[in-house]
Design a protein around this nucleic acid. Structure first.
Length: 430
RNA sequence: GGAGAGAUGGCCGAGUGGUCGAAGGCGCUCCCCUGCUAAGGGAGUAUAGGGUCAAAAGCUCUAUCGAGGGUUCGAAUCCCUCUCUCUCCGCCA
């Protein structure tokens, strides 16, 4: 949520900046609601003040044993008037909140302006895609030939966009998760947290998934809970409604969770394979920092995510998302895209964003500044990394002509020293 | 799931219809005193929003005693619903 003060003082400038991301702010409506709000609030508060004063007088009079019927008659009219005024204010405030919570974050000045993915700006490429001397196959074929990846059964158990993995592949996913968590906790200074996978609506409002993106969520209506679409939701909401001491900053959390997404509106996209699933594993990095530090924190966080890819020796590139492609709550986002040889392209494997105070304002997540005043935190997060897609990248980039998959050296310790996953090894294992 | 008890400021804790944003204590900040330390004295110490103002300061108003609703001229206090915590029983990983 944007600072309403900002809109009051310079709505034109805000609207202009929002238009760069394809959002048209209804200025007339905002100004009209603000006008109404102001009138109603002033009137309501004046009536409340009057009521309070009279009530106080009644109390004093009664204490002295005086007759209060005259004063009571005086306030008789107040009740209905106040009630009507309060109701009006509440209605307008509600409309204002609705308008406000539907406005996306304002992009930072250095975010490239553009309409879509096509206008994102590549920032750097790291690693060289491997040259294959045999026809590469995609991860689905790699996994199915090994007998370790099964979409048909998953569909029977559940429905489309789910997967069953077994044997060395299931273990490889677990190894990846462990590896990522270990790197972030021991080398990058994050505190590992374990969090709920079912969250309430307030948490989703806090990080900006609600009210706009209900369609993308799995919703357990009976229990008024939602399956998390990302660990960002429970982890960021750890500080909702809190005022954290300055000394505790920056807060750096890493969490491994499954993520659940309905993928409404993406029916034709990525229907094959594990790229787009209703359920996938992710290791998420979240930071809460002082406002002046959030941009350097974003660069650092991006580096932490990249560290996983370099350790796995997977080629990738970093792109700065343009205004039109950024997420609703973000002020600046970098995507990391990993090389997928079978698609002959780079695909998103991490998204690192600075939300500035946008989420913190919704959550009322604050810290006590050196001036002693509570101020809104800046929140950031990024995948470090999407485990499922990392698995895809390994299967494709590390595939061999004989159908086996080499295990990246940094993961071997997590797999009991196994160097290669092959059909034969699977057939002979205990 | 059943029975009971509770939720007040950074913390402890008083407050069962009136001058209560809330006694008292602890903690914290500033000042004074004390040649160190200890002790003592004084002042201050929630959050959000509105109005005034170019802005800030200041002044002023409103809201908030777990959350939401209700009764009342007036609610921390009475009523209803919900959430959470604790104790006992049951069940369970």
């Amino acid at each position: 949520m944007l600072d309403v003060q900002l809109l009051r003082t310079d709505v034109q400038a805000v609207a202009k900046r929002l238009s760069t991301r394809g959002f048209e702010l209804d200025i007339a409506r905002f100004e009209q609601l603000e006008q109404e709000r102001k009138t109603l609030q002033v009137r309501t508060q004046a009536l409340q003040a009057e009521r309070n004063q009279v009530s106080k007088r009644i109390g004093q009079a009664k204490a002295k044993g005086e007759d209060v019927s005259a004063v009571l008659a005086e306030v008789a009219h107040l009740g209905d008037e106040l009630k009507a005024s309060e109701a009006g204010l509440e209605r307008v405030q509600g409309q204002l909140d609705e308008l406000l919570s539907g406005i996306p974050n304002v992009p930072q000045d250095d975010v490239p302006i553009g309409a879509s993915e096509a206008d994102n700006v590549e920032r750097r490429r790291v690693g060289t895609p491997r040259a294959f001397d045999f026809p590469v196959v995609d991860h689905v074929e790699v996994g199915e030939r090994l007998g370790l990846l099964d979409f048909a059964r998953a569909a029977r158990i559940s429905r489309a966009r789910f997967v069953v993995m077994q044997g060395a592949l299931a273990r490889l996913q677990r190894a990846l998760t462990q590896f990522m968590l270990d790197v972030h906790t021991t080398r990058h200074g994050y505190t590992e947290v374990y969090v709920p996978y079912l969250v309430n609506a307030d948490s989703l409002r806090g990080t900006g998934q609600l009210p706009k993106f209900l369609e993308d969520l799995f919703w357990l209506e009976r229990d008024e809970l939602f399956l998390i679409p990302t660990a960002e939701v429970p982890v960021t909401n750890m500080v909702r409604g809190e005022i954290v001491p300055l000394e505790s900053l920056p807060l750096k959390f890493v969490a491994h969770t499954p993520c659940f997404r309905r993928e409404a509106g993406s029916y034709g996209k990525d229907t094959r394979g594990m790229i787009r699933q209703h359920q996938f594993e992710k290791v998420e990095l979240v930071q809460m920092v002082e406002p002046s530090r959030s941009n350097e924190a974003l660069e650092a966080l991006l580096g932490h995510a990249e560290g996983i890819l370099t350790a796995l020796d997977l080629p990738y590139r970093v792109v700065t998302l343009c205004t039109g492609d950024m997420g609703f709550s973000s002020a600046k986002t970098y995507d990391i895209e990993v090389w997928l040889p079978a698609q002959n392209t780079y695909r998103e494997i991490s998204s690192c964003s600075n939300f500035e105070a946008f989420q913190a304002r919704r959550m009322q997540a604050r810290y006590r500044s050196d001036k002693g005043r509570p101020e809104l935190l800046h929140t950031l997060n990024g995948s470090g990394l999407a485990v499922g897609r990392t698995l895809v990248a390994i299967l494709e980039n590390y595939q061999n002509a004989d159908g086996s998959v080499t295990v990246p050296s940094s993961l071997r310790g997590y797999l009991g020293g196994v160097e290669k996953i092959s059909a034969e090894a699977e057939a002979t294992r205990d």
